[in-house]
Amino acid sequence: MMAAADHGGPVRPGPLRAADGAPRPRRGQRHGSGYSRFVRLMKVGLMGIAVLLVVLVAIWPQLQTVEEEFRVKFASLKGASVDQIEMINARYFGTDEKNRPYAVTAARAVELPEDRVQLDNPKADMTLEDGWVMLNGDTGIYDKTGKTLLLTGNVNVFQDEGNEFHTSTATIDVEAGDATGDEPVQGAGSFGWFTGEGFELTDKGKRFKVTGKSKLVLTGVEAQEGR
């Protein structure tokens, strides 16, 4: 015989079971452990941010002082504090009183006192009334105020007519288009060749004069006309 059900009190539902009979967790218990871990991580993260803010507030005045210190030091630098002002592939351009252009170029330029510039491999190009003249050397000193260029070491002078001469020093007035030198000079052109103890290039480069003890050998038209 089957026993009758006891209806003396409320019936409590038993745990839910899966198909295989194993009890299943209630809905509220599925993510309990993951949520607790998230809460703990958030607490740690917020505490770390709070500590970082406290540290920044504490050291901020020191950071501002250091920044201001650097700013003052850089602002107080003067020209005398810099050893050299150097320029690569330097270019200086100008025009003479007749608006004819000239240029002084160099592979390297170093600023010197009294508005002068030391040049490596300098070259001066000057446009004349009916041609041009170019001078170069190993080194040079360019006076930006007086517009003069002192060339030293393997100085070469080339004219558009095909004349050229070589010496060891030359002083050039780049605005006037004139040049002079008092060291031994030698050169050649369509007329022949010459040697001398110095030279003068005047009248905007039109006239060339060999100074001191000199020698001229005519091999071109002038020599034939003199026969």
Rank of each mutant, 00 (worst) to 15 (best):
D125H: 09
H7A: 11
N121W: 05
S76I: 02
P113W: 02
F191L: 03
K204Y: 03
G34S: 15
R108V: 05
F158M: 09
A3P: 13
E183D: 03
F208C: 02
T65R: 13
R116L: 00
A109V: 01
E114V: 02
L135M: 15
R12A: 10
Q186E: 04
L216T: 10
R17D: 00
L112D: 02
N163S: 10
D20Y: 04
T202G: 01
G220L: 04
I85W: 12
T202A: 10
T95L: 11
D83S: 12
D160A: 11
R24N: 00
R91L: 03
W60A: 14
D120F: 10
T202V: 13
V66D: 06
M42K: 12
R37Y: 05
T148Q: 08
G28W: 05
G205W: 07
H7E: 11
L77P: 02
A5D: 13
G226V: 09
S81M: 09
Q159S: 08
G45N: 14
N156A: 11
G162R: 12
I49M: 14
L128F: 05
A223R: 13
R37V: 11
D115Q: 08
V221Q: 14
Y102P: 06
V133W: 09
E69S: 13
G205R: 10
G212I: 07
L119Q: 09
D138P: 03
P61W: 08
G220I: 04
I172K: 10
K209P: 00
D138S: 14
G131E: 02
M47E: 09
V110Q: 10
F93G: 01
A5T: 13
Y142P: 01
T171C: 00
L119F: 06
G153R: 10
Q29G: 01
W60Q: 15
T152G: 01
R37D: 07
Q84A: 12
G177K: 09
V210A: 11
L112K: 14
T127H: 07
L201N: 07
E161D: 15
G177L: 08
V174W: 08
K78C: 03
V174S: 07
G140S: 06
E111T: 10
G8P: 01
T152S: 10
D182T: 11
P23A: 10
G181H: 04
L53H: 03
T105V: 12
R17W: 01
G192N: 00
A5H: 12
R37Q: 13
P101K: 12
Q186Y: 07
Y92A: 11
L53I: 08
D115A: 03
A179K: 10
